[in-house]
Amino acid sequence: MSQQAASQHAAPADRPLLGVGILGAGPVTQAIHLPALARLQDILEVRHIMDVDAAVASSVAARVGATAGTSMAALLDDPAVDVVAICSPHQFHADQVIAACRAGKKAVLCEKPFAMNAEEAARISAVSAETGVPIVVGAMHTFDPGWLAAEQNWGDLPGQVHTIRSSIVLPPNARFEDFATEIVTRPAAGRPDYSDPDVIKSALRGGIMGLAIHDLPLVRRFTPDFTDLEVLQVFHVRPFGYAVSLRTPTRVIELRAVMNGTWKPQWTFEAIGDDAALHIDFTPSYVQAGSAVATLTRGNGSDTRTFGPYGHNGYEGEWRELAGLARGTRQAPAAQTLIDDLTFALAIADATAASAGAGHAGAAGKAGVTP
């Protein structure tokens, strides 16, 4: 950021800017986080960007006038960095979250999933409790003002819900990324061998942990008995997608997604009860199209309330939350909530992959979730 730009967006003297350091400068950082942070220059400033590719780090950091580097340790040692965002490949998340907590940063944002298994999640929880550093997981829909408004107004809906649906129809991420920004070093796309059952299983597991996981914390909000989960049917959808039906003793859960050449993206979430229903239309995250619109309906439809659209989406919302946590004006989420969200997602992903069989329609099976 230039000195002139910095002066134009300077924070009040009693609320200095929080410095942001980002580990990983790939498409999510470039197309989502940097545009969101650009709208929050009165509270947050990108000061350090790290990527294992020095050219990528330098190119992306130059866009915001930040320090560039290839060393995580250098970023964590940088006194100008108050808040760390972890946008690296999944397998590095746990160790990097723990390192950021031990470095004494004020708050940590980690892209989902924040851990790959329950053991990693427990380690993160212990270190967060030990250091007092709050952690936010980047499930952006939980920070969307449309969702939050619905949550504040839905009354007894969670207790009466019997059916929950997440339905996603999107073009491939690359198309959104191209709309949003000039991406540096896009990974080469391959052609999966869908005649290989292991490829199908990997695609299904990846679909749950990479796409469905955005809505699974919302699903769990309406699923009090999530520890007793049964997979009814699984289908792999080409070129990339899934159709998964599950149930608990009191709920039916439907997860649907397809990424293809569609011209009109659609992302909806529904929770349907005996006397009330919630319908949410989420915007595609990459195009920075504002908040979700939530509709609450009761009875025969005569009582309908709509919330949104609001001026920002869930990605901006999570950064606002992170700034509040760093300043101590917001309360950190309970570690057990993050662990329960993760174990719920892992259980569905593992059971979905295990259920993939002949014709890619799985037999019913139990999904083990440890409360």
Rank of each mutant, 00 (worst) to 15 (best):
V184T: 12
A121V: 00
T181C: 10
S202T: 00
A149I: 09
V161I: 10
A139P: 03
E119V: 14
G132N: 13
S166A: 03
I208S: 08
T181H: 08
E182H: 13
E111I: 00
P172H: 13
V169E: 10
I208H: 06
R205D: 05
P171E: 06
W147E: 01
S195H: 04
V161Y: 11
D196N: 15
V184K: 04
E130N: 01
A122W: 02
H162A: 12
Y194N: 11
E130G: 02
A107M: 04
I200F: 01
G146N: 02
N153G: 01
I208N: 07
P187D: 02
A122L: 14
R165Q: 06
G206H: 08
I135D: 08
T181G: 04
V184A: 07
L157P: 02
N173T: 06
W154T: 05
A189F: 08
G104Q: 13
R165S: 07
P187V: 12
A203C: 07
L157W: 03
P172T: 10
A174F: 12
L204Y: 06
W147A: 04
K105L: 08
G206W: 03
F179K: 13
N173I: 09
H141K: 14
P192G: 03
L109S: 06
R175D: 11
H141E: 14
R205Y: 12
A188D: 06
D193N: 15
V127G: 15
I208Q: 11
K105F: 05
E111M: 04
Q160M: 10
I168F: 01
I183P: 08
M140R: 09
A129H: 14
K201V: 01
C101Q: 13
A149K: 08
A129L: 15
A174N: 13
E177I: 05
E111P: 00
L157G: 01
V136Y: 06
C110E: 02
Y194F: 15
D193Y: 08
V184S: 06
H162N: 05
G132F: 11
V133H: 10
T142N: 12
R123Q: 13
E130S: 09
D178L: 11
A107T: 05
V108E: 02
L170V: 09
R186S: 08
G159T: 03
K112M: 11
P192R: 09
M116F: 04
A126T: 15
P134C: 02
P134E: 03
R175M: 09
D156T: 11
V161D: 10
T163K: 15
S125R: 09
A149G: 04
I183E: 01
L204E: 00
A203T: 06
N153E: 14
V169D: 01
F114V: 01
A121L: 05
P134W: 01
T181R: 03
